[in-house]
Design a protein around this nucleic acid. Structure first.
Lengths: 328, 328
DNA sequence: GCGGCGAGTGATATCGATCTCCACTATCGC
DNA sequence: GCGATAGTGGAGATCGATATCACTCGCCGC
């Protein structure tokens, strides 16, 4: 910036004021400065600015966004909202592992992001949450509910899952299985509750044997489905509680030659690009991912401005997309 | 840091040296400093360090990584390599749009990343490349070849695509179509050349009518396939040149009720998680994505150390994964 | 007894911006 | 004329770290 000032024949202060429009500068001076900037190819050093201003205008994101397309969509929403308000996203991938998440949060903190958007990763010591509280970092949690005093953007999992189950029941299924997500995850619990509520609403008994944990991942879900199908009286319909487990489920049913929906009906939580290209296309609950991202950023910016405000929990409604895997 | 120094009863210099192990400090002093750090919950400000050292130990990534799972895998590789060498990744998504890419590059530059990894986005003015050259930013391009003097990690597209075509020809197909990628992309051109080479090797004529552009995206590919199938003598096999177009292709064939591989055989470039769960499973060329990420980071770190070294172009080999969509 | 050396430490300039305070000029009103 | 005020510009402290240089204190050897 000193170079620019020298070349334009003004002081550093003036260059700064031209750059930030923080006070009126004579038009000729402005032009001289701008010319100097162009000629020198000057790019301001945001680090120095951040140091002086004590804010970076960037938001840290700690999700398994690269690993899971679901969060990819959420990030898209955040990005849109950020460009709208002049913020910049610093993306990191936690791979849903607590150690890694903690590292990533620390790295973002060292880089002094103004706030963070996270999805909770189950951790016996709850280190991430404690860290955020201790250092008073403005943060918004998405998708997975947590206990602490944080803003949260969540999905109405129970009712949604309930509707999925009653839909299958309406097709006459009396033995409906669930491949549920990682233990300890709020979404897993809520979806499981919704599953039971759905059974109840349909007047069906809850059979523990029909509930298998797929750990929110492909391979465990594959095994879970195999276990379900090996039962003496296996389910005639299965629900998967997230997109990755859906893949494990499809693979497993294919491996043991069960035809969908003839031999077994399925319906799944999470919609995704490929869901309607399967044979048959998958009946799925689509979560409002982008909306979630937008809301999260809005909440976060509000919190950055007013750190003392009471935390908000916000619930979004998924949309049931009926296709053919359920027997429709 | 001043607080820490005060609390430990030493100078700021000493705290810095303890933190960075840049000179020998008496064990008692080290302990005093570490205690002070713990008690105060001190987290160093990387921005200030970066300002003083003129390097950030972070690498900027400008890809369509969130949009395209293919690049997601590449990022995974980069991440692994970065943690190995103490660097941190700053991820951004370009959505494969030149304007957006330019913005993102500028933002990364303002934040003074030590170097960048990019995938070229076709741009009539070639602004991104010019920008990198002008500001002498260490950069490595992946996946898509470009002209300028940059390190590049690429895939051997021609031979790979050729093998895909000859494989289909070996099944007796004489009319083989191609849904090719975005015009102007090096990968699109190379894959198309490989397609023609494959036809030649199999002794088949090249029919321009069997070559349709799918623009590397779902919807245009969908339309491209419909056009192909409306020909008076439609192809009996189609090749898709990337993962997104594969989805468009599958949707289109489903829409017009063509059975794979009975009515039409398909084989695709890019493998992905769902490819083996389709009915039938998709014969695909798997690119060494993670390997690509690892190589890119290694090259970039080398270039950061030695900016004057001659640029390197490196080619990786994809792997043909034969499944059932080809008729096998 | 003095110079040399190595280990341990501190004072201070520096990185590149912002921001507060102060200085100067021109215009206006009385 | 003179003070008040608006418009414009600069000097220098500051942000929180690193880096350079210099200093003190023992200890060794001659």
């Amino acid at each position: 910036m000193a170079d620019v000032a020298h070349r334009a024949g003004v002081s550093i202060s003036t260059v700064s004021h031209v750059l930030n429009k923080t006070r009126t500068v004579a038009p000729e001076t402005v032009e001289a400065v701008n010319n100097a900037i162009d000629e020198l190819g000057f790019i301001p050093n945001i680090l120095a600015r951040a140091l002086a201003q004590a804010r970076t205008s960037t938001i840290g994101v700690a999700l398994s966004a690269i690993t899971n397309i679901y969060f990819g969509e959420v990030v898209r929403g955040m990005q849109a909202e950020c460009t709208r308000s002049g913020y910049f996203l610093f993306l990191t991938d936690t791979a849903d592992q607590p150690d890694h998440q903690l590292e990533v949060i620390r790295a973002l903190h060292e880089r002094r992001v103004d706030g963070m958007v996270l999805a909770h990763v189950p951790d016996p010591d709850n280190r991430a949450v404690k860290y955020l509280e201790k250092h008073q970092i403005p943060a918004v949690f998405v998708d997975r509910a947590i206990d602490g005093q944080f803003d949260q953007v969540l999905v109405e999992n129970r009712k949604a899952m309930q509707s999925l189950v009653t839909h299958l029941a309406a097709h006459g299924h009396k033995r409906i299985g669930l491949v549920s997500g990682l233990k300890g995850l709020a979404t897993s619990i809520e979806r499981q509750e919704g599953y039971q509520a759905g059974l109840k609403e349909a007047g069906l008994p809850f059979d523990e044997g029909f509930l298998e944990c797929g750990e929110s991942e492909i391979e465990p879900a594959y095994q879970a489905v195999l276990r379900l199908m090996r039962l003496p009286r296996p389910p005639t319909a299965i629900v998967s509680a997230n997109n990755k487990m859906t893949l494990g489920m499809v693979r497993a049913l294919k491996a043991i030659n069960r035809r969908i929906p003839k031999d077994i009906a399925i319906a799944v939580f999470d919609d995704f690009e490929w869901a309607d290209s399967f044979d048959p296309s998958l009946t799925a609950l689509a979560q409002p991912c982008q909306e979630m991202g937008i809301r999260a950023i809005k909440l976060l910016l509000r919190r950055i401005k007013a750190p003392q405000r009471r935390p908000v929990r916000m619930f979004l409604e998924p949309e049931l997309r009926i296709r053919h895997s359920c027997g429709c």
